[in-house]
């Protein structure tokens, strides 16, 4: 029988937590997660989910994604540069081999790299433990070899998981996961050994969700960015993630919406523009132990 809940996190309403602040008293941490991806023309078909509708090739689907690397990424980079913003790349690590030019451009700008699997159409569904370990080891070794960075973050390829993924990530020293959409703050995950936290990623302020699933206009997405920011900023002690895909946001007609959103966000005081790893590190340094203690006492019924 499949579990109806994997119990990776405790319930603690956001109103019952100690206040959280960011470096220099910033009210909000904002991070950008461009998904830098490589889709294969003819990937093996995972029995649980096909990367492309059959029969292969899917020329429209494949070439649309490829546009992100040939054209869109470079426009997005220009816009991020204009605002002096760093991204944290959710990286299909095979981009290191296929397009090292893209890796170099991100590295020159001090971006962070976190793992988004090997290829976007290689799903984790159905992997046994040895296979999943091989995947994680591949990602760690590839990123280290091509960038010199120790891999700290994880967003499963196409957000596909097994029931054991977070346990394995913690074992390999990954410090944060982006596969949890349940919160506006980082939060400890219950892993069998080591430690792992979720940090807020988003399927809301995410151009793929907005443009492909919800059929937003760019103006609608721009309004969503601003409204999300305004509310989280007013509440304080929150994280805002903006998840982007070069093949979508790198289109000429959508860039203005992003620029307007960025103008709005960068015009406020008290905003900490961070990478995913910086947010995770800050949380571990200042809040993790306290939260673990609080959760332990709640579990033992002392609170």
């Amino acid at each position: 029988m499949l579990a109806d809940d994997l119990r990776y996190y405790d319930y603690l309403p956001i109103t019952k937590r100690p206040p959280l602040t960011w470096p220099n008293g910033a009210r909000i941490a904002v991070w950008f997660a461009p998904n830098v991806e490589f889709y294969e023309l003819i990937p093996p078909v995972n029995p649980a989910r096909a990367a492309w509708p059959p029969p292969l090739p899917d020329v429209l689907g494949y070439s649309w994604r490829d546009y992100g690397n040939r054209v869109g990424f470079w426009r997005l980079l220009e816009v991020m540069d204009r605002f002096r913003l760093r991204g944290s790349a959710a990286l299909n690590v095979a981009v290191c081999q296929h397009h090292p030019e893209i890796i170099a451009a991100m590295q020159e700008r001090g971006w962070e790299f976190f793992s988004h699997g090997i290829y976007n159409g290689r799903y984790v569904y159905g992997m046994d433990e040895a296979q999943e370990r091989a995947l994680i080891e591949d990602a760690i070794v590839t990123v280290e070899r091509h960038t010199g960075h120790r891999l700290k973050g994880w967003l499963s390829p196409a957000l596909t998981n097994t029931e054991r993924t977070p346990h394995l990530l913690a074992e390999y020293g990954i410090t944060y996961s982006c596969d949890f959409m349940h919160d506006d703050q980082p939060f400890p995950l219950n892993v069998r050994a080591g430690r792992l936290i979720s940090i807020p990623y988003t399927v809301e302020i995410n151009d793929a969700a907005a443009y492909i699933r919800r059929l937003f206009s760019p103006q609608h997405f721009c309004e969503a960015i601003k409204a999300q920011f305004d509310r989280l900023y007013a509440e304080g002690g929150r994280v805002m993630c903006i998840a982007l895909h070069p093949y979508l946001t790198g289109r000429p007609y959508r860039l203005l919406a992003l620029i307007e959103g960025l103008e709005h966000i960068t015009s406020r005081q008290g905003v900490w523009f961070a990478t995913g790893a910086e947010i995770a590190d800050w949380y571990y340094t200042h809040y993790y132990n306290g939260m673990i203690a609080l959760l332990a006492s709640r579990r033992s019924g002392q609170v």
């Binding site: 294969e40 023309l41 029995p47 095979a94 081999q97 296929h98 090292p100 046994d128």
Partner: peptide, 20 residues
């Protein structure tokens, strides 16, 4: 469910440039 065949962890066209 049968385990995922190992071809899912082989990447024969992982190289500089395109995969075709």
């Amino acid at each position: 469910m049968a385990p995922l065949p190992n071809e899912h962890l082989r990447y024969p066209r992982r190289r500089h440039g395109m995969d075709h």
